[in-house]
Design a protein around this nucleic acid. Structure first.
Length: 296
DNA sequence: AGTGGGACCTGTCCGC
DNA sequence: TGCGGACAGGTCCCAC
């Protein structure tokens, strides 16, 4: 997916065109994504104004004037294509497929939101790992998909002390711990690899081994720092991990940001004094890229 | 309780 | 050129 930086970028783009605007009509081109749309999904959305739209973990959440929350997750391949009404400024499209997917011909355009000002927002998702839900604001705290989610990595809570406490005694590989959304939310496969590389920590090391009973360790401190770094740099770069990502203004915002280990198997380690070679291993079914020489 | 593995889908790329 | 297999940004669910 889109990991946290991409979802953040998408949420900002959606907020720009949706906030303060009423939804006129919603078209569903199928009954489900990852799971069925809730009963009356489209009908309940129609007529509600989007009061605020933001991100929690990798979920996009929109607060609606009727008291509901619209939850959207992009899964692995979800994207929004925005056709702005002419009155709102220059036409902009983001998350545009390289080939230029059009709502009329894209077989994966599963949801179309039409706003009262004429702007059209298409959700397209070939693999359909994405999801959407609609529920009352009062239910948000207990929502199954949201209640167990961990801290936001870019807020004030992520620190060496937090990781020390959260990973204490954990026997899972450090990489798996970073991917665990119940601990820190929003880190995906790419940024987990990148953060570990920068912290010079092995993805295979057991999570508990960077902690100590007496308080925060240097390793935990370092990892907290590199997680924040890789995520915030990626946001600054405009959301980097999608091959076909196009910024709102049509500029290619993508792949200007290069990764140091992700997808670089066999290449020399970027660390000046290190003569290592980037390796690829599989951990819990997913590729991990790292330098076995300097990541310990 | 904590951890690991399979399942969910489609598209793309690589080797034969 | 065609075909099969591996692999892809994520998360849920069910066994141990």
């Amino acid at each position: 997916m889109p990991e946290l930086p991409e979802v953040e970028t998408v949420a900002r783009g959606l907020a720009r065109v949706m906030e303060g605007v009423r939804i006129l009509h919603v078209t569903l081109n199928r009954a489900d994504l990852r799971f069925p749309f809730p009963p009356g999904f489209a009908e309940r959305l129609a007529g509600q104004r989007v009061d605020a739209l933001g991100r929690r973990a990798k979920y996009v959440l929109a607060n609606l004037s009727g008291g509901d929350v619209l939850l959207m997750h992009l899964g692995m391949s979800g994207r929004f294509i925005i056709h702005e009404a002419e009155t709102t400024g220059k036409p902009g499209t983001f998350y545009l497929a390289t080939g230029g997917a059009e709502s009329a011909t894209d077989p994966h355009a599963h949801v179309v939101f039409t706003l009262e000002n004429g702007t059209e927002i298409v959700y397209s998702d070939p693999r359909r790992f994405g999801m959407m839900d609609l529920f009352a604001q009062a239910e948000q705290t207990d929502h199954k998909l949201l209640r167990d989610i961990g801290i936001e990595p870019l807020g004030n809570e992520l620190s060496g002390a937090f990781l020390n406490q959260a990973l204490r005694g954990r026997k899972m590989p450090l990489k798996a711990a970073l991917l665990d959304q119940k601990i820190v939310a929003g880190i995906g496969n790419i940024y987990a690899c990148e953060a570990l590389y920068r912290a010079a920590l092995s993805p295979r090391r057991l999570a508990g081994t960077i902690t100590s009973a007496s308080g925060c360790t240097e390793r935990a401190e370092k990892l907290a720092t590199t997680v924040r770094e890789v995520l915030s740099e990626a946001i600054a770069a405009g959301g980097s991990s999608l091959r076909d990502y196009v910024q709102t203004d049509g500029e290619l915002g993508y792949f200007q940001h290069t990764f140091q280990v992700y997808d670089r198997e066999g290449e020399p380690c970027a660390r000046p004094a290190c003569a290592g070679t980037v390796a690829r291993i599989v951990q819990s079914g997913r590729s991990t890229f790292f330098c076995p020489k300097c990541q310990r």
